[in-house]
Amino acid sequence: MVSQVVEASAEVTDFSHIAMMVQSIERLLKASDQLQERLKLLQVKGDLLDSVFGPEGSDSLQGELSAAIRNRELLHAQLLQRKSRLQGLISRTKDFGDAHEQIRSKLAALRDQLMAADGLQPDILAKKSQSDQFRVSLIPD
């Protein structure tokens, strides 16, 4: 499941899909933590494996257990990296949305100023004053 989620989240760009992927990753990370506890418990109970499977069977199982632990650690690290990347995308998307709203607000204010302006100004000083007022409106906060 981890490999599928990591692969599926590699090219996701839609904000709603990104959020869903982060939720899936968080569930998998939680399951990974639970699995880690179970695997550690098995590792600690090596003597029990000896009594059930014998020394050779126990050694084989311990080898498989060690490989499973390394694989879980690798997949867990991949999930953490992907979660971080996706959360970064979410943050940038939100920042973009905020900036977009600020621009829309400034443009609306400028449009209102233009509408309220008394049309063409008769002399150069009045035109410069009006131009300066418009520039101040466009300066970022």
Results as ranks from 00 to 15, higher is better:
8 A>V: 03
129 S>F: 03
108 A>T: 13
14 D>P: 01
41 L>P: 00
130 Q>F: 01
28 L>W: 02
9 S>T: 10
72 R>P: 01
16 S>P: 02
8 A>I: 03
90 I>R: 12
52 V>D: 04
63 G>H: 08
56 E>Y: 00
62 Q>V: 07
123 D>L: 04
140 P>W: 03
99 A>T: 12
94 K>I: 15
62 Q>N: 11
106 K>G: 01
5 V>F: 09
125 L>R: 14
20 M>A: 15
82 R>D: 07
124 I>G: 01
114 L>Q: 05
25 I>S: 02
17 H>G: 13
135 R>S: 13
72 R>Y: 04
67 A>F: 03
86 L>H: 06
112 D>N: 08
91 S>R: 15
15 F>N: 03
93 T>H: 11
45 K>T: 07
38 R>M: 10
126 A>E: 07
138 L>N: 02
57 G>E: 08
56 E>A: 11
38 R>G: 10
7 E>R: 15
104 R>T: 10
72 R>S: 09
127 K>Q: 10
84 S>I: 03
3 S>Y: 08
75 L>Q: 15
28 L>K: 07
94 K>H: 12
70 R>C: 04
93 T>W: 04
41 L>F: 09
32 S>D: 10
128 K>I: 07
139 I>F: 02
50 D>R: 10
77 A>M: 09
31 A>R: 12
29 L>P: 05
134 F>H: 11
89 L>Q: 15
43 Q>R: 14
101 E>Q: 13
82 R>S: 11
22 V>H: 05
141 D>P: 11
116 A>C: 04
124 I>A: 12
18 I>Q: 02
104 R>W: 00
3 S>N: 14
119 G>D: 04
3 S>I: 12
49 L>G: 00
113 Q>P: 00
18 I>P: 01
71 N>G: 02
111 R>K: 14
83 K>Q: 13
124 I>L: 12
119 G>N: 02
1 M>W: 13
71 N>C: 01
65 L>F: 04
37 E>T: 05
34 Q>N: 13
25 I>A: 02
109 A>W: 00
10 A>Q: 13
94 K>F: 07
103 I>W: 03
108 A>W: 03
73 E>C: 06
81 Q>T: 13
140 P>E: 04
26 E>Q: 13
129 S>V: 01
106 K>V: 09
135 R>V: 15
45 K>R: 14
94 K>G: 00
11 E>D: 11
54 G>R: 06
98 D>F: 03
17 H>K: 12
125 L>P: 02
48 L>E: 11
36 Q>D: 14
79 L>A: 07
69 I>V: 09
104 R>K: 12
45 K>D: 11
76 H>A: 08
62 Q>R: 14
11 E>K: 12
9 S>H: 03
120 L>I: 11
72 R>D: 09
136 V>C: 01
110 L>C: 07
52 V>C: 00
88 G>P: 06
81 Q>V: 14
28 L>Y: 06
24 S>L: 06
132 D>E: 12
35 L>K: 15
26 E>T: 12
106 K>W: 02
72 R>L: 15
106 K>S: 10
49 L>S: 06
111 R>L: 08
37 E>W: 00
32 S>A: 14
35 L>W: 01
97 G>Q: 12
72 R>Q: 14
9 S>E: 04
